[in-house]
Structures are given as C-alpha cells and as structure tokens.
Nucleic acid binder design. Structure first.
Lengths: 125, 125
DNA sequence: GGGACATATTGACAGCTATCGATATATCCG
DNA sequence: CGGATATATCGATAGCTGTCAATATGTCCC
C-alpha cells in the first residue's frame, strides 16, 4: 500500500533562504527520494529522450536490465509523485514527463542565496 | 565504514538531454540520496541561514531534536559529499556550505530541455 | 596531570525499500 | 469464447540506513 506523494507547489520551499520547518523538510526529502534512485533516474532520462516525448513500458523494460514488475513499480512511484504522466492506449501504457515537479525540485535546491548574506535578510525563523 | 562520496564535476550529467548511463545514474542517485533526508536538509538550511554562514555542532544539535551522535553522523555524510565543509577551531567544529555541489545537483535536474525536442538533438545513445 | 566540555566513532537494531517470482487484470484478435 | 500480449499487483526477502546508547578522541583550563 503506497501513499500518493504528489509533488505540489507546497512541497518545496527553498532549501536555502530560510530555515526549513520539520514538515517542509520531510516533504522535500520525500520528493527527493523519488528521484534519488538510479533506476528511476534512468527511466526519467529515457522517457525524456524518447522521440515524441513518450515511451511505452516495453521499451523501458528492455533497456533497464530489471524485471518488468520492478520497472512497473518505479513507474508507479514516479507517476504518484507527478513526475511522469500515464496514458493508456490499447494494450500499451505510455509515459511522458510532467515538467513542473522536476522544476520545483530544482528551484528548491537553490534560490541563488547560498553563501551570501541574503539568507539573513529573509527573516530566518 | 562509509565511503567518501564527493560530488564532483563528473557526478552530474544532466538528467534530461541524453540517456543516463548506468554509472552516471548511480552516481547522481548517490548524490541525491545525500540530501534526500529531512535531517540533512534541515542541517543545510540551518547552516546556510546562520549568521556568518557557519554553525557549530552544538547549535545544530539544539535545533534538530536528534541525538548528538546522529547529528554528527549526518554532518559527516554531508561533508563527505562535499556539501558542507568542516573547520575545527578550539573545542568546536564549524560547518559551512560549499555552494558548488548543490549547484551541480541543481544543474543535473534540468538543462531546460524537458518536454522539448532538444533532447533528440543531443545524440541520444 | 586531571576534570570538564565538544565532537566523533562504534555497535546494534528497527524500519524501509528495491527487487524478484507468481499471479491478476486488461486488451486485442481470431 | 479463448489464447496471446502488455502491464499491474501481491507477498516475500535481502540489503541499506537513520537512530540511539555507550564510548573514544580531542581540547581547554585550573
């Protein structure tokens, strides 16, 4: 039983700039854990690089040296997180990138204030 | 026994733009796992927000609701990854952010080619 | 030296998760 | 309907890691 772990607007306050609350840290960590896996990184990379911007599971399974259930599992994790979108057409399931979540994660990693004095200007709690 | 897992220039080819090799995916995943933890995210956030850009361990231990050995462990993981730098002065150890690794990770997440045709232009393997 | 303090290391353990084989579900086709 | 194909789900397991208590190391000061 896996919980939905959608990466939404509220998941990713910037890592630097103000101190992360326990809740925010938990949320951001959960979002990062989704992509902190080699198989899932390769899946995202494969889908993004595929022509038409989408891949069906069979293509992905072929290239990952992992069993089909395992690939399916990773795709579910990525989809639940909102990073991939699933569309079923006939017997096949096609996955494509949903750009926003990755962009949000990226934004959370650095607002450009690392190592500067800006951090103290922003009302540290 | 923990391996050094320095995040260097070679760790983070872009996630999107070409297909990640198994090795690159493993490296990037390892780097992401370092920050995919709520305690470590809060540590980075705390250090970045502290005045002077540095904190000693005692300050961090106070604010994390975790035991001192646990905080020390997380600081070691972050330091081994190159995200924090340790400087010992007297009895105290001070940690500060090393901006580059986070910036590299951030860069790996998206070169701006998500969902565009650019990915196919870049020589997909 | 010796006590107090700050931090690091060690060893143990519980919880999580990546993986697999087996099976279920769903869709197409003849 | 029945077989074939594509994907998802289930149950089990092994390996990893975050956490802690106990202890070690290092530093200052009297």
């Amino acid at each position: 039983m896996r919980l939905i772990q959608e990466i939404d607007q509220t998941c990713c306050p910037p890592l630097v700039g103000s101190v992360l609350s326990e809740t925010d840290a938990e949320r951001l960590a959960q979002a990062l854990r989704v992509i902190a896996d080699p198989a899932r990184l390769r899946l995202v990379s494969l889908v993004a690089a595929s022509e038409g911007g989408e891949s069906c599971v069979c293509d992905l399974t072929d290239r990952l040296d992992l069993g089909q259930p395992t690939v399916s599992h990773h795709l579910k994790v990525l989809t639940d997180a909102g990073i991939l979108r699933r569309e079923k057409r006939g017997r096949w399931a096609y996955y494509r990138i949903e750009p926003e979540p990755l962009e949000l994660l990226r934004g959370a990693l650095d607002p450009g204030a690392v190592g500067t004095e800006r951090s103290t200007e922003l009302g540290v709690t």
